[in-house]
Design a protein around this nucleic acid. Structure first.
Lengths: 209, 209
DNA sequence: GTTTAAATCAAACATTTGTTTAATTTTGTG
DNA sequence: CACAAAATTAAACAAATGTTTGATTTAAAC
């Protein structure tokens, strides 16, 4: 599907609303108003509300993929450095697309076997493969421990970032960070998260217990 | 509010539906049918759909609280043992109330300042206080490191469990666990999670880096 | 400038929504 | 049994929903 300016306009408005109020909680009229287009344009361009959601998903999925292919084959980086880059990339992607992430969190809770579930599954599988390669490489080099539960490790990476993104207002309050500007706060989160997760990964991948 | 048998019947049906399709995605007629009561009974008992949600939330919140008060003051347990019990209790609560948890995940994403947001905030604060006490005790005894970011640590605990609960079908597939019965699979998850999180906590609380 | 297709619009469409009504049945109490 | 309160029901309600229609405007091509 090609994305005309108007289409993108609608998809981005829809994304924001879906993130805040959910798919069912957002009316087509809400979307039309937020996008500044006539109500009928949504059916005209996408066919239906459901198909708008699918289109938005495809649109965002593309830019949500981690860009690791070249980095992975870089011989100048230690495995641990690569893992750290993976963590930072993941944080970056997720923090930069918080709305889309919220939509994804909602969607993956319903185990429908529609187009969107398939897309989420594909995204997950792709990232899982990448980190698997990375860790196996480190194990072969003797840098990492044997017997690492990679899916569980991914749960911790994704889960921690996701939890912070979806409940950041709590985090902000509990840490008395209201004085920070929104931008400063976002930077603060990224730095903290990066540090925290790298520590966890290092411990799991390297330390003996 | 007192919970008559019929009220509980309705709340539990609603919980299950809200978990699967969200609040807005569930119609009052859906709930009535699932609970086996007449449509009008929901307004009759609860006043409105919104108030039913709030009632269900209060009802479930009560049994969702961690029971740690007595354990915390037990002098026979090492701080690390207490942390491990905290982890296991958290896993237990969340795995036993997966539907309610899903509803909570959805709700805490919308930063409304209604009754439900307040209840979630209270729950979080309570658990946060408990673990704070626990960790400070361990630090005083010299068992744990100084400078631990407790809120972030909670993000990892809650986030990891939550991520696994909300995407367990994906986890099951990637690990080729389809042959297990549902019950066996749930047990498998608990064991794995417990082991995994205890390792992380131990590393963060004890290891120097 | 005319023609043709695409884009935009207000209005209408049929359903579904949450809630209320008013009548009926059940239950508990004397 | 008689009576009152509570519980249950089918029907109706207005409002909101996603989608379609048919007319009108804009844009592009010749």
């Amino acid at each position: 599907m090609e994305y005309s300016e108007k289409k993108v306009q609608i998809m981005e408005a829809a994304e924001k609303l879906f993130a805040g109020k959910g798919f069912e909680g957002t009316s087509v009229r809400d979307i039309a108003e937020a996008a500044g287009v006539n109500l009928a344009m949504i059916s005209y361009y996408f066919g239906s509300k459901e198909k708008l959601m699918e289109a938005m998903f495809s649109y965002r999925s593309e830019s949500f993929k981690l860009q690791l292919e070249t980095m992975i084959h870089n011989k100048d980086l230690e495995p641990m450095q690569k893992v750290e880059q993976l963590i930072d990339q993941y944080i970056e992607k997720l923090m930069n697309q918080q709305c889309f992430h919220r939509v994804m969190v909602r969607e993956q809770m319903v185990n429908n076997n529609g187009l969107i579930a398939t897309q989420i599954q594909a995204l997950k599988k792709r990232n899982q493969e990448l980190i698997k390669k990375l860790i196996h490489e480190g194990q072969k080099k003797g840098d990492f421990k044997k017997h690492i539960d990679i899916p569980l490790l991914m749960m911790t990476l994704i889960g921690t970032v996701s939890q912070l993104v979806t409940t950041q207002h709590y985090y902000r309050e509990i840490n008395n960070l209201q004085s920070l500007s929104e931008e400063e706060f976002q930077k603060h989160i990224r730095r903290k998260l990066s540090q925290h997760l790298k520590g966890i990964f290092k411990a799991i991948l390297k330390h003996e217990d």
